[in-house]
Design a binder for these strands. Structure first.
Lengths: 246, 246
DNA sequence: ATTTGATTGTGTATTTTTTACACTAAGTAA
DNA sequence: TTACTTAGTGTAAAAAATACACAATCAAAT
């Protein structure tokens, strides 16, 4: 019995040693921050000041602190860079190629975040002077493996779009159906049929007319809708119905 | 011009320092190894010998080595534990809560792997004596946050099942439709209608009759099919058709 | 040889979802 | 008042999903 306990203590020590003596690695968190200005889908970037990528746009990120959860770090970075708390945030994937960073080994855990223009503009947030929103269609090269990361983020966003109405995180409270359709087209990358799109969205039964209309547009103003939070409660699947049946 | 170069060097040094001096963290890779013995979906576990989880089943994993890519590490671990190379492997998610490991901070990058029984049994592989396959339905508690990880893995597997025929990685070359249906039912967790299931699978047009039949079964033997690798080439989407239309 | 038991394999009708497609309505600007 | 621009609407056809029951084939037992 006592022998067992002693060996147990030895055991713990050996485990601690194993962790302590083992390779420790710098871990960063990088965020693909998507924003939608009612025209195009954009990504917030910062100019890289590190060779050999100097001048290229790079994602927003930082090294992970010792006592910091991953999600915490992502939230901290978003707060620092956009001034906004509680953005919609979702982990994408972790990139860990040994040579992915020119200055040493850094594993990066990536997230995507969704920002609506209103939030972004409202609270006097000043992103660092060399940061800028780049339209997805305009992104050609990025620092490090950030272009890959951005593509994976977009892919994740696309899939998620069909599972949960995260698109509301990119829109103001009141939005029109043409605006929503434009957002979808931006994310999916294809034009959609107006009537079929409306039919589908309305059949989801999660948005309702706000009673308001668009203002200051030089044409027929669209009706404005908003998400019905009550209907949103229940988990629902957009298209991923059970493919078979019991 | 020269000034610029110097400041650039300083810049690099400051960046290197930033990485070098920053918190470095132990990173592990944990694998949810799914296996299918033609009866149930199982997960390969090892008995945890670390308090306070001693005796609980734990996932197969190891700390990441200095010069090792994440995928490499996952493959190494699988090779070590199952003796098999080139298992189907996919990254799931990274778990990084500060207190997730009792002996210090360890961030874990998780993967799921798919093993067919034939591979597992064939090449004299000896999993460590205290490892065992546990049926998914029998898993009640696990060490660390491994139960959460297993659940996320299962969820990922379910979704992937509808996007790509990874189920073939869990089956022998020749398999019957009832066997495939049973596998689906195990993964999805619901019974499926036999006729509708067959109709759907056959409509995918990726499997073909092998001409063989089941042997040594005490009832009518089923026809055996195999995946037609040629038809598999092209990317295809199982169910995720474009929900709208241009 | 016949029967029993277990499981495989098959088809159709109904409902739901997706797709294709074009004109009128409501505003602003000239 | 007219021209311009974008919003908003419905229906028919095709495709996919669903519900559902019985005959066929083998092994094992009698």
């Amino acid at each position: 019995m006592k022998g067992k306990e002693i060996s147990s203590v030895e055991n713990i020590n050996s485990h601690i040693e194993e962790i302590e003596n083992h390779a420790k690695i710098a871990v960063s968190v990088d965020c693909v921050i998507f924003g939608y200005d009612m025209e195009e889908l954009k990504v917030l970037t910062i100019e890289c000041n590190m060779d050999p990528y100097k001048g290229h746009p790079s994602l927003i990120g930082d090294l992970l602190d010792e006592g910091e959860d991953l999600d915490q770090a992502a939230n901290r970075i978003l707060k620092e860079r956009t001034g906004i708390d509680n953005l919609y945030l979702e982990q994408i994937k972790t990139f860990g190629k040994v040579d992915r960073h020119p200055l040493g080994r850094v594993i990066t855990v990536t997230y995507f975040a969704l920002v609506k223009k209103a939030d972004y503009n409202s609270n006097g947030m000043r992103p660092s002077p060399n940061s800028q929103w780049i339209a997805l269609s305009q992104i050609e090269e990025m620092a490090f493996d950030h272009l890959t990361i951005t593509n994976v983020a977009l892919d994740t966003l696309r899939k998620k779009l069909l599972e949960y109405p995260i698109w509301m995180k990119l829109l103001p409270i009141d939005f029109s159906l043409p605006e929503l359709q434009n957002l979808f087209e931006n994310i999916i990358g294809k034009p959609l049929d107006k009537r079929n799109f409306r039919k589908k969205i309305l059949s989801l039964d999660i948005i309702q007319e706000s009673g308001k209309k668009q203002k200051d547009v030089p044409h027929r103003p669209a009706n404005l809708y908003r998400v019905n939070q009550k209907k949103l409660k229940k988990e629902y699947s957009f298209l991923l119905k059970n493919p078979f049946h019991n």
